[in-house]
Amino acid sequence: MESRTAWAFLAPSLVLIALFRIAPLIWGAQLSLTDARGITPGDYVGLANYRELASDPAFQDSMSNTILLIATLPVWVCFPLLLAILIHQGVPGGRFYRATYFLPAILSSVIVGSIFNTLLRRDGAVNALLKLAGIAPVDWLGSSSTALISLIVVQLWATFGMSLLIFLAGLSTVPQDMIEAATLDGAKLRHMIWHIIIPTLRPIIEFVAVVTTIGILTSMFGLIYVLTAGGPGTSTTLPEFLIWLELGKLNRPGYAAAISMVLFALMAGLAWAQIRIMQRNADV
């Protein structure tokens, strides 16, 4: 009975997902084994695309950029979580913050890009501020050492509102009476975060971690396109941008599919690891 109900409840979703997501994935896996170029379907070439990837310097660079990006993941989760807890705990002006923090998420990446383009220019406002502090100007988006970090900070700023919103929804499941006693006292707050909020919120934190991982690996294109175009050199080329390049400008769907498959495997591996880590911590 229970299982029949479950399947009935899942059926419409599963049909849609199988049709529009899983089937195309299998098709993409097939495509990645061909040398398709332009509209020519291409012949089966086995793992040749994957072998080419292994020796493609642009792909290698995109992978090391990805590792750096993933290393910043804890910030992407903790920053909105902390803000959500503070707002939920009734920090003064919390309602105002709740309303404003979501605003960047609404704006298009073109606008966000235009603003930060100008702020981060070598003769831009950020450098003007640094100059006041006596620090030499930095070409934030134009030097290989700072471009990726600048991009990450802008994207974090532009999207943390969404995670914040999800955490706020999750916090509504934390039993109110447990929280009431706690005030905004530093020590008590820390105790409460560790012993009440985080255990209750575990599935939601796990959710945000997984979704953020996917988000930073698949939806930074808009900002990359406007802010750095993958440069300087390949220092902000992420796999997603490379897929766009190979699929559009270089017109090689087979090769692009191979990069997509690697990206898919990478995300799946990360998500699995995240869920494992979260569940182990929960058992402790």
């Binding site: 899942l10 195309p24 994935l25 495509l31 996917i214 897929i243 998500a271």
Partner: peptide, 23 residues
């Protein structure tokens, strides 16, 4: 089932464009 749904979340949109369009 849960893993399958989770996996489908991770499919980069660019690669499914052509089959999606055909569907």
């Amino acid at each position: 089932v849960f893993i399958a749904i989770l996996a489908s979340l991770m499919i980069p949109v660019q690669v499914v464009l052509v089959p999606f369009y055909k569907t």
